[in-house]
């Protein structure tokens, strides 16, 4: 598998007036092209920080990040959809194109075709408030994909949704990303979500973040995330990851 991204001994500190916070400490990881890579860690462990480092929004205090793609080819999907209420769905989807001055007819057509393909075609003229939470999250994904990223970073993108919607949207997102042949890094604190969606899962220690262990997910990529949840290997892997995570999580009640 060709490597798309590599972190070597990354450390990151936040500096505030009341002191510094060591958020990431000596973290090393490598993500391959086309992979759906999961990162699981307790809340406040430094997952968002890690994604910001990957995206180049933050610069690490020390260590080396080698990207085999340009930062422009990285898409980022945040926990909340952050759709702009004053824009129609169509204009939300093309926001990134507008910002990058690449709102060409062809790119808009591509964005619209994505929207249509993932059943948002009828909602293009609507306002975000008229859409359900799951649909809004799909719009947010398509806003990201409209820029044709080679890698997308997903920061707990489903955690604001209710359980039922969450399973469906997670499956949709996985399908869209796999079908478009994009590499994805999914951050979550939900173990079952990580197993259902990802090919490999890195478990982070509690803050400061370090990779404790990387698990290969044995289920076939072709299965849907729902089918993966029913696979017998699921429960076994869940237990292993949970043990790893539970151990790091003990008595750490500090929130994010």
């Amino acid at each position: 598998m060709k490597e798309i991204l590599r972190l070597e001994n990354i450390t990151h500190r936040y500096h505030g007036k009341s002191g510094e916070t060591l958020a990431v400490d000596g973290l090393t990881m490598s993500v391959g092209e086309g992979e759906f890579y999961g990162i699981v860690g307790p809340s406040g462990s430094g997952k968002t920080t890690l994604l910001s480092l990957l995206a180049g929004i933050l610069a690490p205090s020390s260590g080396e990040i080698s990207r085999h793609i340009s930062p422009q080819e990285i898409g980022y999907m945040l926990q909340h959809d952050h759709l702009f209420e004053w824009r129609s769905i169509e204009d939300n989807v093309t926001l990134g194109l507008e910002i990058r001055h690449s709102k060409t007819e062809e790119n808009v057509r591509y964005a619209m075709s994505l929207a249509k393909k993932y059943s948002l075609g009828d909602f293009m003229k609507k306002k975000p408030s008229e859409l359900s939470g799951g649909m809004r999250q799909r719009v947010a994904l398509i806003r990201t994909l409209a820029l044709r990223p080679k890698l997308v970073l997903l920061d707990e993108p489903f955690s604001a949704l209710d359980f039922q919607t969450r399973l469906n949207v997670a499956e949709d997102v996985r399908k869209i990303i796999t079908e478009e042949g994009i590499t994805a890094i999914l951050v979550t604190h939900d173990i079952s979500e990580a197993i259902a969606l990802c090919d490999r899962i890195a478990v982070l220690s509690k803050r400061p973040a370090r990779v404790k262990k990387v698990f290969d997910v044995p289920m076939k990529k072709a299965l849907s995330s729902i089918e993966r949840r029913e696979d017998e290997a699921f429960a076994a892997l869940f237990r292993e990851v949970w043990k790893e995570l539970e151990f790091t999580d003990e008595k750490d009640t500090k929130g994010e």
């Binding site: 930062p71 945040l78 702009f84 004053w86 990134g96 910002i99 820029l147």
Partner: peptide
């Protein structure tokens, strides 16, 4: 204006002027 919305704009590689014109001003109508 929500800091995360500004973060979103930055993930789409918006510069400060674009953040102003496409987010800050319309959000403040």
């Amino acid at each position: 204006v929500d800091k995360d919305k500004i973060l979103l704009m930055r993930t789409l590689s918006a510069n400060k002027m674009q953040v102003l014109c496409k987010l800050i001003l319309p959000a403040n109508v």
